[in-house]
């Protein structure tokens, strides 16, 4: 079982990205996938979007896996491995989680040492404002990613080059790919997500 951790600020497009990635896993790669969905708030909203997608979904409510319920996450990972043991486990973090922290936690406590990749989705349409007001959180979410997808480039206009430059300054040599909110992700982008070697 290999693990894909998806992070990124609230509303950046994590769920839409995961739906495309999961479809690629099941329909093109003919492999199996399960999902841990972490949402903040008493009413789960996103998990309904996975209904009918053929993905085994394990919701985690009541807090953020990054800080409040991190042990619940490790329990869920262990349980999924011992019951379903899919080829891929996708973890959708809340939009407030710091993916690097969650990855460190799983690497430390997941006894089976699954291969793991951290993918952070950046909302290009709100990058300037989010960085202006919430800079420490936004930077910590992007830092320590293994792959960054700059999403909603169609909403960024002429700022897109500056946004990519900003992200590059944070992540160094980590791959940065771009995607539009209005078009399906290109195959090359989806394949890069699975690049765990």
């Amino acid at each position: 079982m290999r693990i894909l951790l998806f992070g990124g600020f609230l509303g950046s497009g994590k769920t839409s990205t995961i739906l495309q990635v999961a479809k690629q896993i099941t329909e093109t790669r003919k492999e199996t996938v399960a999902l841990i969905e972490n949402e903040i708030g008493e009413a789960g909203v996103d998990d309904q979007l996975f209904a009918g997608s053929g993905i085994e979904v394990r919701p985690l409510f009541g807090g953020c896996v990054c800080c409040q319920i991190s042990s619940d996450l490790v329990t869920a990972v262990t349980e999924i491995r011992s019951t379903i043991n899919p080829d891929w486990l996708i973890v959708e973090m809340t939009g407030l989680a710091v993916p690097g922290n969650v990855a460190r936690f799983i690497r430390q406590y997941d006894a089976s040492r699954s291969k793991l990749r951290t993918i952070t989705i950046v909302d290009a349409g709100r990058w300037v404002e989010l960085k202006e007001v919430l800079e420490p959180l936004i930077i910590s979410q992007v830092k320590e990613s293994d792959l960054v997808i700059v999403n909603k480039t169609d909403l960024a206009g002429s700022d897109i080059c500056d946004i990519i430059k900003d992200v590059r300054a944070i992540v160094g040599q980590v791959p940065i790919l771009t995607a539009s909110a209005t078009k399906p992700f290109p195959l090359a982008l989806l394949e890069e997500v699975f690049n765990l070697e």
Binding site: L10, V45, Q48, L49, G95, D123, G125, R126, L130, V133
Partner: peptide, 25 residues
């Protein structure tokens, strides 16, 4: 823009009959 997200799931009684709406800008 919204410094966060606003999401609404509207469901009617029958199964798989819903509308999901969200706004970030």
């Amino acid at each position: 823009i919204i410094l966060g997200h606003i999401k609404v799931l509207a469901r009617v009684s029958t199964e798989d009959d819903y509308l999901f709406l969200s706004i970030t800008r």
